Amino acid sequence: MAAKFLSLACIRNESGFGDLSPRPHYPSMPKYPKGASSSNAEGSEAKALFSVTGMTCSACAGSVEKAVKRLPGIKEAVVDVLNNRALVMFYPSFVNAETIRETIEDVGFQATLVEDDMNEISTYVCRIQIKGMTCTSCCSTVESILQNVPGVQKAQVALATEEAQVHYDPKVVSSNQLIRAIEDTGFEAILISTGEHRNKIQLKIEGVRTDNSMRMIENSLQALPGVQDIDIDAELKKFSLSYKPDMTGPRNFIQVIESTGSGRFKAMIFPEGGGRESHRKEEIKQYYRSFLWSLVFTIPVFLTSMVFMYIPGLKHGMDTKVVNMLTTGEIIRWVLSTPVQFIIGRRFYTGSYKALRHGSANMDVLIALGTNAAYFYSVYSVLRAATSPDFQGHRFLRD
């Protein structure tokens, strides 16, 4: 037995395989094409980043990685399923980026080569105003839709401010795609701002009287780490600062400003206003006008169904039968209720349709269901009274 092992070792040494390299992760993966030496390839290494859409789990990432690594000339391939990215290190003399991209697509996923320098990849922050949200369910729906968009890293939606803040990769998705995703859920989206992952704040400075003081404050703020850009409005005594939130913040700015002038300068956050505030006021006016028009129709409905029935003369007029058991009061209430349901309340139908089309339910759906149930039951009662000589209905078309 020992002689057999010794003979095998001799055969191995004679064959020239004594310095075998470690076995690759995938046995069928050729690092270099047949006939090519490693010395010809090591000096010309390249790197490519691909955006891969359609991956849903680690198995998808594994299949992409395995397919890429089977190509000749691939040094390393790393697939990130969370960010839908594939980073490939390869030797251009044996394989190119287009071949790698086609290989990924052959697996069943869509691949796009990211042309930009990979060392300068940055996260963008997009602020979007969302109109039409009425409850936390609306926020959850929009947030879920945004987080499912490829390239979105984080999405937060606030009902109180009607605003969404989305952290995304600009090489994978654009702000226009984010707006379309929101509008597809049934809400109106308006872009407020987008750009690199940095915050912006406006400060109002009190105690500044000369241009020299403004320049002194600007130089002090510019010296802070993390401050990227400063815009000055000398007339309003306003400083607009763009900064990296992980390095500095408003508290540091105020401290620096107040220490610069030995206590002469006072800084405070500049109150926001402008277009957003005017838009908010216009929206309130629209709701107020709709409310007034609804009162024009609903107050008579309330009076005919709840008040006039206790006034003898008016009660007789309301109870006058027109056709079979159909009375004058019922016709009046039907005519007055219909515009409120379908004209003044059409925004609820529009919102319900858009929400249900995407498989979600919001407050518009709840309102539409409740009012439709009351309205169409009342219509049924009207039609039954008009076609039956002995139908006894209750007061309706008043909910």
Rank of each mutant, 00 (worst) to 15 (best):
S28P: 08
K31R: 07
Y32M: 13
K34I: 13
N40G: 15
E42T: 13
K47G: 06
L71F: 10
P72H: 06
A77W: 03
A86N: 00
N96Q: 01
E98H: 15
T99S: 14
T99W: 13
D106H: 14
G108I: 12
E115S: 09
Y124M: 04
C126W: 07
S140I: 10
T141M: 01
T141Q: 04
I145E: 10
I145Y: 12
N148S: 09
P150T: 11
V157M: 01
T161W: 00
T161L: 03
V172F: 08
S174G: 07
A181N: 07
E218F: 01
L224C: 06
P225K: 08
Q228V: 08
A234K: 00
L236E: 04
T248I: 12
K266Y: 00
E272H: 07
R276D: 04
H279S: 15
F291I: 14
F291D: 04
L292Y: 03
L292K: 10
F297E: 00
P300R: 01
P300V: 04
F302P: 02
M309L: 14
H316M: 13
K321E: 15
V322E: 08
V323G: 02
G329C: 00
I331R: 09
V335C: 15
V335T: 13
V340P: 07
Q341K: 05
R347S: 13
G359C: 00
V379K: 01
T387I: 11
S388R: 04
F391L: 00
F391A: 02
G393I: 03
H394N: 12
R395D: 09
D399T: 13
